[in-house]
Amino acid sequence: MLTFIIRRTLWTVVVMFVITVVVFFIFFKTPGVDPARALAGRNPSPQTLAEVRAQLGLNRPLLVQYGLMMKRIFITRNLVSYSDQGQLVIPEIFAAAPATLSLVFGAAIIWIVMAIVMGVAAARLRGRIYDPILMILALIGLSAPVFWIGQVANLITQGGLHNSVFSWVPPLGYTSFTVSPLHWFTGLVFPWITLSILYIGFYARVLRANLLEIQTEDYVRTARAKGLSERRVLLRHTLRTSMITFVSLFGLDFGALVGGGAILTEVVFGIHGVGFLTWQALQNLDLPTIMAVVIYGAFFIVLMNALVDIAYAWLDPRVRPA
């Protein structure tokens, strides 16, 4: 087990390193991108440009440039935004993180509860009309673009009905929990639902298939033969077993969402999280911000992947040599 953890950790570090190299080259070494030009102000004279270039170390060897950049991102954390030289990129990302975490955590709770309810219901009701209906609903959830669901939600809650049924929904945007817990909650209800729909559909399908699969396994049959009630079998045996897949999937999806995957939901609801930050940076071609978000996002995902793998190996020793 220990060797597995060590190997997995080492590999995680290697992937992270390769990611930083790839990102560095995408953003700073493609022809046509001149970071000095962007940082030198509006109408720079050639000598100003040259000086800024020297300050940034752009005239140094490639390796040194890479080193300097990584130092700015991870150690001194003083990477400066292109669009605003007073703005440090890394603190900005950390300031945006609570909004993203609020959004993803809330949505995760909704999708786990709903997916379990739907998946279990569909599995229990197999052979009846409810099963296909539930599964078609799940498929529809899987098929709708999340930003479009968000627009529809906005149309309903911010449009004509805003002055009657949905008057409790605040205007688009994110209110920090520390400012007003109530606004934080009411403002996030529809973003949570919107973001969770895709995952409800997906997890419900996976769970149902998993449950049906496990039901044919020997130990479940044994449990049934012992005369345990169907409900007990489901809760004590099948559901518990299928949770392993469920939890590992969840780890990956959660990582992806926190690592920038929630960008569409954040943009459509105007939630100023990490994804929204990226979107703003995109509008201004603020490369340092995009780069930092991509690196931090990828790191988070790699980390979650590693944790899931280790947890999985711990729970199920068969996968260890993989």
Binding site: I26, G261, A298
Partner: peptide, 11 residues
């Protein structure tokens, strides 16, 4: 390992 949308956006 890259976030899917962020990678696409970067490219």
């Amino acid at each position: 390992a890259f976030p899917v949308y962020l990678l696409a956006i970067s490219l």
